[in-house]
Amino acid sequence: MRHSSSLVVIEPNKSWFDLKLRSFWDYRELLYFLAWRDLKARYSQTVMGLAWAVVQPLFMMLVFTVVFSKIAQLPSDGIPYPLFAYAALVPWTYFAKSLDRSGFSVVAESNLITKIYFPRLIIPLSATLGGLLDFAIAFLLLVAMMLWFGVLPTWKLVTVPLFLALTVLASLSVSLWLSAFFVKYRDVAALIPLLTQVWMFGSPVAYSASMVPQGWVAFYNLNPMVGVIGGFRWALLGTPAPDPMFLAVNVVTISVSLLLGMAYFNRMANTFADVI
């Protein structure tokens, strides 16, 4: 019997943008294993199991409904406020949880990093992709709420995967920076919860983007989650569509941040085993 073997040559990156993307395919089984292991660890020995995926957005929706709809009486673009808020909380919760898991992922895998070679980018990527199951479960509840409130989906529903892809890329682009910084600066552990809290109120989660003063609109739309959340509401609930120009700016912002984040992460990955 013949056994095939392959030789892997490990050498420093020749440039900042030597991303070696082919290695993701070569190590696809490791990517799958890490994502699956994260899911099993998260839900093993839990009473509610996968139901925890909807607990946070559901309770946040209830709090927002009381505070922002009943007390502050904020407008919701003609949509029942619980549905209006939950439609934004589904992508936002995925984004926030991805930052939390991915930001600490490299340090959490220190034993693996110091023992074997593999593309380090797989670690934050697996942590980001591991949240898609939670997203899917929360999305099913969103569909049930739409039927309950009599809001039927239209052809716009086919654009949801595009906005989900933007959410994943936005999460990964930020996570790469945070995870690389956290290896060297443990202050990032305190920064991530603060960042997500401030970022949430800087995004149209609890309120409509139409409430933003005109003079702040251009600056406000630099936030990529503005286009993502607006896109989800438009695709599912029929609210006003995001401005195409600002949505294009969001795509460019996410793309540039992701490319630079991958370059910086790969450059710093050469020192991870020594610093950790």
Rank of each mutant, 00 (worst) to 15 (best):
L30D: 04
Y27W: 11
L19C: 04
Q45V: 13
S69G: 15
L112I: 15
S110I: 12
D26C: 10
A88W: 05
D18V: 05
K70G: 08
T46E: 06
Y94G: 05
G49V: 03
S105A: 13
V107N: 07
R101W: 08
Q45G: 11
A96G: 07
L34R: 00
D100Q: 14
V67Y: 10
M60T: 10
A96Y: 00
Q73N: 14
A96S: 12
D18I: 04
Y27E: 03
D77H: 06
V106C: 04
V54K: 00
N111E: 13
P57G: 07
A41R: 13
F95D: 00
P57Y: 00
P91Y: 10
W16F: 14
D100S: 15
W16A: 11
E109V: 07
V67L: 13
F17V: 02
L19D: 00
R28G: 08
D26E: 14
L74E: 06
F84V: 01
T65I: 08
T65S: 12
V54T: 01
L31I: 05
L39V: 08
K97G: 12
S102H: 03
L19H: 02
A108G: 15
V55R: 03
F33V: 13
L21T: 04
F104I: 14
L99C: 09
N111K: 13
Y32N: 11
K97F: 09
I113E: 00
A41S: 13
W92R: 02
I79T: 08
P119I: 03
W25P: 02
T114M: 14
Q45H: 14
W25I: 12
D26F: 13
K20R: 15
Y43I: 02
Y86R: 02
Y32G: 14
P57R: 04
K115C: 08
T46I: 02
R120P: 01
M61N: 03
D77Y: 02
W52G: 03
L99V: 05
L62Y: 09
A72Q: 13
L112R: 04
L74C: 02
E29S: 15
L74D: 07
F64V: 06
D100I: 11
P119R: 05
S76N: 09
F95Y: 09
M48S: 08
D77E: 14
S105K: 01
L50S: 01
R42D: 06
F95R: 01
G78A: 07
R37C: 06
V66D: 05
W52A: 03
V63R: 10
A35D: 00
S44D: 11
L34V: 01
V63L: 15
V107E: 09
F118H: 04
V107C: 08
L31D: 06
